[in-house]
Nucleic acid binder design. Structure first.
Lengths: 108, 108
DNA sequence: AGGTTAGATAACCAAGCGGTTAGGTACGTG
DNA sequence: CACGTACCTAACCGCTTGGTTATCTAACCT
């Protein structure tokens, strides 16, 4: 699976997006990350592995804790990808598009 | 499933992203959309249904054709969501963050 | 009416996902 | 050492997904 696909796949789960949101406040242990959720530890571990494989988090090793840290690099690619579609949702870009199309028509 | 989740899920497949890319050039029939891919018609139909449910395309009805059209509105939400993480990938924002942290430390 | 084309639906299959429980490992502390 | 804590892996379960083939509908064209 390519980078963008695995990033999108990782972001498709609300629990994982909530984990990323929590990590914007700083690193956290697995226990801390699991507290807001009503699911088991292993379920959180799986989510973290998905996020790690997508390159969205990095994990350290401190005694019995495995602190997680946000790595937003793949999100830049997401933003760049989405921005390519801006002209299809942005009204002013749409008007610009229409203008350019009209000018092309007049050329003929 | 919430809007953002189904949008991300729809974008997680390269075939579907390629379909969206094709639709930036204008509306297309199912047949036209399926041509670049080596998969069956029903498979394309399923992809289109996923895109439709995610609100990323709309479909018309012209005789025996069902032209598909891009609707990029959900992609704006994706861009907005990703932009919230800009300061975690953007170097200048990172430096600003570091500066603010340092200032907080000095306050103590 | 008969044939072709566009497309959807149905039934099926293998693989993946999100969750569980049970059990294992590694570390700090009484 | 014994115990608790933090976390992981393994095995399992039900549902979803991405694909297939076969069959159906709807429209067009002789």
């Amino acid at each position: 699976m390519d980078q963008l696909s695995s990033t999108f796949a990782a972001l498709a789960d609300p629990t994982r997006r909530a984990i990323l949101a929590r990590l914007t406040e700083g690193p956290a242990t697995v226990k801390e990350l699991s507290e807001p959720f009503d699911i088991s530890g292993p379920a959180i571990s799986k989510h973290l592995r998905v996020l790690e494989k997508a390159g969205l988090i990095t994990r350290g090793r401190e005694a019995q804790w495995r602190p997680c840290q946000l790595d937003a690099t793949p999100l830049r690619e997401v933003a760049v990808w989405a921005e390519n579609y801006r002209r299809f949702w942005d009204a002013s870009y749409a008007r610009l598009d229409a203008l350019l199309t009209e000018m092309k028509e007049n050329e003929k």
